[in-house]
């Protein structure tokens, strides 16, 4: 795993206009034990120290990207083999075979999250919204909520199961979850509610039905659509006002060596 930050160096000198920023820098840095030591040691242990003038600075984060590498099957087999001394079976064939159990587990979790949310929202829609605004509006009101759930669930399974951005993994998980959803909807739900398939299609509002099927298609595609680009860019946000630290913010802490404090 590696993360790269692109940014701007900003010095925080001991001046009134930097007082607040210095306090904030100190509040964060002093959480580390012996936080001052590396700066001190790096100079003190030189034959000719440059300077012992202490300095707080910050890097203004302008962009941030990160990559995580995971071994594929063949690498995992080699790693396991090296660790255990056991020769892996069919190392060559493993390299290109997708891990179906991982895809299946991801699909199952994806299905449970999305249809679990749907099972909670469905009764709310039917009992509370439909009598007030009608089926079409109720379904359209529910749509953005369900799409958000689908988006978050897709991001979750991609991250949790480390699904690489390959069609077989991403679309595989989406399509299996879609199939589970169809079975759930037309198998279990219709059976429980006692509605036949014909009645189901004849009684439902066409716009509401279309909205529902659009969300099902997006359910299948969403794992493929998320996380394909570098999305590590940091959104510039309004800086929140932080509670200022009440603790001392002198240049060197009281427990720093006397020698370095004498430089101030």
């Amino acid at each position: 795993m590696s993360v790269i930050v692109f940014g701007q160096y900003e010095e925080l000198p001991e001046k009134a206009e930097f007082e607040s920023a210095r306090k904030r820098a100190f509040a964060h840095i002093q959480k580390r034990v012996m936080w001052w030591e590396p700066a001190y040691i790096s100079q003190d242990h030189r034959d000719q120290p440059n300077s012992l003038i202490p300095l707080f600075f910050r890097i203004k984060v302008e962009k941030m990207t990160g990559d995580r590498a995971n071994p594929d099957n063949s690498e995992a087999a080699i790693t396991t083999s090296a660790a255990t001394g056991v020769e892996p079976q069919s190392r060559q064939t493993n390299a290109r075979e997708p891990q179906w159990t991982r895809i299946l587990r991801a699909a199952l979790v994806y299905f449970v999250i999305v249809f679990g949310a749907g099972s909670v929202l469905g009764p709310i829609r039917t009992l509370l919204l439909v009598p007030r605004v009608g089926e079409r509006i109720a379904e359209l009101m529910e749509l953005p909520v369900m799409l958000s759930v689908i988006l978050m669930a897709a991001k979750f399974i991609v991250r949790r199961f480390q699904l690489p951005p390959h069609m077989i993994y991403r679309l595989g998980a989406g399509v299996i979850a879609f199939a589970l959803g169809i079975v759930f909807e037309f198998g279990l739900v219709l059976k429980v509610t006692g509605v036949t398939l014909t009645e189901y299609f004849h009684t439902r509002d066409p716009v509401a039905t279309a909205a529902y099927y659009i969300s099902l298609v997006l359910l299948a595609l969403m794992p493929l659509m998320v996380g394909r680009n570098v999305i590590g860019s940091v959104q510039k946000r309004k800086t929140r006002h932080h509670a200022e630290s009440n603790s001392s913010h002198g240049l060197w802490p009281e427990d720093a060596p006397a020698k370095i404090n004498a430089q101030n």
């Binding site: 700066a39 300095l55 929140r240």
Partner: peptide, 20 residues
């Protein structure tokens, strides 16, 4: 470099002595 990031991740803070 030892560092600390702030809660908003707008800044990475460092402490050093003046040098190269």
């Amino acid at each position: 470099m030892n560092y600390a990031a702030d809660g908003d991740y707008l800044y990475v803070y460092g402490f050093t002595t003046v040098g190269q």
